Amino acid sequence: MASLRSNNNFHKKRIKRKRVIRWVLLPLMLVSLSFIAYGAFLFNKAESVMEESYNPIDREGKRAVNPFDENFSVLFIGVDDSNKRQFEGSSRTDALMLATFNQDDKSIKLVSIPRDSYVHIPEKNIYTKINHAHAYGGVELTLETVEELLDVPVDYYVKMNFDAFIDVIDALNGIEVNVPYTFSEQDSKDRKDAITLYQGLQTLDGEEALALARTRKLDNDIERGKRQQEIIKAIIKKSVSVKSIGNYSSVMEAVGKNMTTDLRFDQMKSFIEYATAGSNLNTETLNLAGSDTRIDGIYYYQLDEMALLETKAILKTHLNVTSESTKTPMDTASPSY
């Protein structure tokens, strides 16, 4: 009798244990399958979006690089050619940022190039503001100008307008950024003082982040470049967080409508290695030193030649490349005034 009672108890425990295991495993399996299905959906959606955004440029002398195995660079080009500007092909760049990626230590260096930098524009063979390069010759001339300025290869480009900037941040439910001072700025529709931000760490939506990225009322182009770098880093941080997984579809839709790039989808997957580096990812921001100047009554930002040489050396070391051209610093230096 005791033996029968013992067997019944053992049988009940086994049934209970199976029931517990079932209630634990089934939700886990459901979650896992959901992630797999969502991952497959995102993969297919990303591939479709990137195919629509893919716009290669036939550049003479462009080096062949494998982003999975080699160091590479990407020029991020921000332009105000949104709906209000009717996507004018001759628009000037509002932001230029070169990112270099080092495969060995999974590090990124971000270099902001002030839009008013006084530089040589190849092909046109003139000296003017670097943001004019896009107006004169689109993405191709912009790439050539940056390559000549920094003396490193620009392997890829990503061109986005203000709509993409706003929509991506909104799709991520905002980003956390420190606002250095209180100010008012126009919005994306050029309505004067439509956005007011107060000093301090806070979560910004797309329009607010754009206002922070654009303003230079209380400082200069260099400080604006630093803010743009911080915003980019905040976007990267928010994008790779687990909380943002459910927003990836909206992010891709925002990007696809307002971006062009010569990165193929299979090449873009190389960024996963950097994203999964997590806290081990080392992102350093660099800025081009210089001073304000006026030439023929027009404001320019005159780059400091010695500081520029130092930045070139840092980028070459990070990319592990030799000099991009045979020109000496004096050949590409701005004419003195």
Rank of each mutant, 00 (worst) to 15 (best):
V168R: 03
E223C: 15
L201G: 06
I195C: 09
N131W: 07
D167I: 13
Q199H: 09
V152H: 10
Y198R: 13
N178M: 09
T182R: 09
G200C: 02
Q202K: 11
L141S: 00
E123M: 08
V154Q: 03
L210K: 08
L210V: 09
L172R: 08
I166N: 08
S117C: 07
K217D: 12
S188N: 14
I231A: 04
A213F: 05
M160W: 02
R214D: 05
D187R: 09
T196I: 08
V139F: 02
V177P: 00
E148N: 13
G225C: 06
R224S: 14
T196G: 07
L110N: 04
D167V: 12
P153E: 01
V146T: 03
K109H: 12
Y181F: 12
V154K: 07
P153D: 00
D151K: 13
A164T: 10
Y157V: 00
D205Q: 03
V168N: 01
T128H: 14
K159T: 01
E185W: 08
R115I: 00
I195W: 13
R227H: 07
L197F: 09
A135G: 01
L218Q: 15
K109E: 05
D151E: 09
L197P: 09
Y118I: 05
Q186H: 11
E123G: 06
K192V: 04
S184P: 11
E223L: 15
D190I: 00
L204Q: 06
T145C: 11
F165N: 06
T142H: 06
V152K: 12
P153I: 00
V158N: 03
S184K: 15
T203P: 02
Q202R: 11
P180C: 14
L172A: 06
Q199E: 15
L150C: 09
D170F: 04
I195A: 11
E185H: 08
V179R: 01
Y181I: 15
R224D: 04
N173F: 05
T215L: 09
D167T: 15
Y118C: 01
H132F: 01
V154D: 05
